[in-house]
Design a protein around this nucleic acid. Structure first.
Lengths: 138, 138
DNA sequence: CTACATGCAAACCGTTTGCCCACTT
DNA sequence: AAGTGGGCAAACGGTTTGCATGTAG
């Protein structure tokens, strides 16, 4: 009855405290890209005692373990999401802050090709499209 | 004998003080993507008195005026480069910190198409390829 | 039982801002 | 001469860390 994210944590050798379980669950349940503050708020709903420092520490651990991905969408704080099998990039509606996930195989391939062209191997990338609703002027 | 970056500043209504001229020149002369500290260091070589707050203020001004572009390559501080006619994206060698500029029209077009597909207009994007030398393992 | 995790508050670090003086226009 | 810009140091906001205590393995 361990969740799959908890299993991953244990595989990576993490000591699973109550707090870490809760934080892992919050991330796993999230449908969005919460920042640390938000993860903290959600965690607190399940166990009042969790400190924000623990959230920071755990999120870093999860990031290092390759279980979550840390994003920086340019608003000054980090946002997190669980790494699942499906890779995707992000489209950010700058009017509303809404974030849409998308995949485009062609772009993915082109990226690898570009890296190769310069003699490198692509190990990571960041592609973010900042957009506004089609009809609006500014 | 005004440099073209200075001309742009004046067009945008900036009062051109000695400090701003120097900072503009530093940016214009830069072949790399200096952070604020680095711009400050280079500026100081031409006029010992420039304060770092002025560098921050001027860089922000230049960014707002669309004369420079502010980048965040994930190392915790902002980096700047002059906006010229050539648009390009960045390839970052994570082993050395070296930054290579590249353009790929096909990727550019695909981005516009993706935004459109979701009903948006692309106003900005960020594409960064994090790479390592082709032969190295990690 | 011991090494490691937590909570709290203080420290950090890049960046911004208030204040008062200096300079551009 | 008037109003904007600059320098300094203090404030800020997100994140990290030292320390004493608690807890998973």
């Amino acid at each position: 009855m361990l969740s799959k994210i908890e299993k991953k944590c244990i595989e990576r050798g993490m000591k699973m405290t109550e707090q870490r379980k809760i934080i892992a669950k919050v991330i796993s349940d999230a449908l969005d890209h919460p920042d640390v503050e938000e993860v903290h708020q959600r965690a607190i709903k399940e166990d009042t005692g969790i400190g924000i420092a623990t959230v920071y520490r755990t999120l870093r651990l999860l990031d290092d373990a390759g279980i979550v991905e840390k994003h920086d969408f340019g608003d000054g704080r980090a946002r997190y999401e669980e790494i699942l099998d499906d890779h995707h990039d992000h489209l950010i509606n700058v009017k509303t802050g809404e974030i849409i996930e998308f995949v485009d195989d062609e772009i993915e391939k082109l990226q690898v090709a570009i890296a190769k062209k310069y003699g490198f191997k692509l190990i990571d990338h960041r592609l973010e499209l900042y957009v506004i609703p089609e009809n609006e002027s500014n």
